[in-house]
């Protein structure tokens, strides 16, 4: 994928990005949109940062783990769409963590957060607030329910990635295989 300097870049590939962090796999050039790809390139990190913001402000403002996770998931959806249909490599292959592991980790973090207060004699799922004064950042209120939100965030991102894998790339793969089978059938006939 990465264009090496000495290799001649085919004319229909000259606009392909040289880094592979953004694409879902080897793109089929005809199904890619330059505009969307550029937009995805700018938006992807921005949206991820915004999702983290939503996650952190969730206790006092609109947001939270679920909303943040969905927004982060949307960033991945955008990347998936911009990458065009993928050959072989799927979005899950670029993300080094398998989506089910992300789901499991998120659920685990959330449940453990629910149980931890019991160790301090407080009711399950109750929360505590810690206030800090940090130079530069100023006054910070950290509520322990943030850990629960982080768990939910991870879970939702995992779910969206798994959906992209099974209902996104999976369906595309099925369709390609069906088309290939049709072609083979016609060729035989």
């Amino acid at each position: 994928m990465t264009a090496t300097p000495d290799a001649r870049v085919p004319w229909d590939r000259w606009d392909a990005p040289t880094e592979d962090w953004m694409l879902t796999g080897d793109p089929v050039v005809s199904e890619r949109t330059l505009l969307l790809e550029l937009a995805a390139r700018i938006l992807f990190p921005t949206v991820l940062v915004f999702s983290l913001y939503l996650l952190l402000v969730g206790h006092y403002g609109p947001g939270g783990g679920f909303a943040g996770g969905l927004v982060a998931g949307l960033a991945f959806v955008l990347r998936h769409i911009a990458g065009g249909r993928s050959e072989g490599a799927e979005i899950g292959a670029r993300v080094k963590v398998r989506p089910p592991v992300l789901v499991g980790l998120g659920l685990g973090v959330a449940v453990v957060t629910a149980l931890v207060p019991a160790a301090f004699g407080a009711p399950v799922l109750s929360s505590a607030k810690f206030a800090f004064d940090i130079p530069l950042l100023g006054h910070l209120d950290i509520v322990t329910s943030l850990a629960l939100d982080i768990g939910v965030y991870l879970l939702i991102v995992g779910v969206v990635l798994d959906l992209l894998r099974s209902l996104g790339s999976g369906i595309e793969r099925d369709a390609r295989e069906a088309a290939a089978a049709d072609d083979a059938g016609e060729a035989a006939a």
Binding site: R98, P100, V101, V103, G104, L105, G106, L107, G108, V111, V112, A114, L115, A118, G121, P123, V124
Partner: peptide, 24 residues
């Protein structure tokens, strides 16, 4: 405390579910 007990039958299987996903 006994007040923790009714929560465990709900949370333990969920924790187990999380662990079994990771140990997939």
């Amino acid at each position: 405390t006994t007040s923790l007990l009714p929560v465990l039958p709900v949370l333990l299987p969920l924790l187990g579910a999380a662990a079994t996903v990771v140990a997939g």
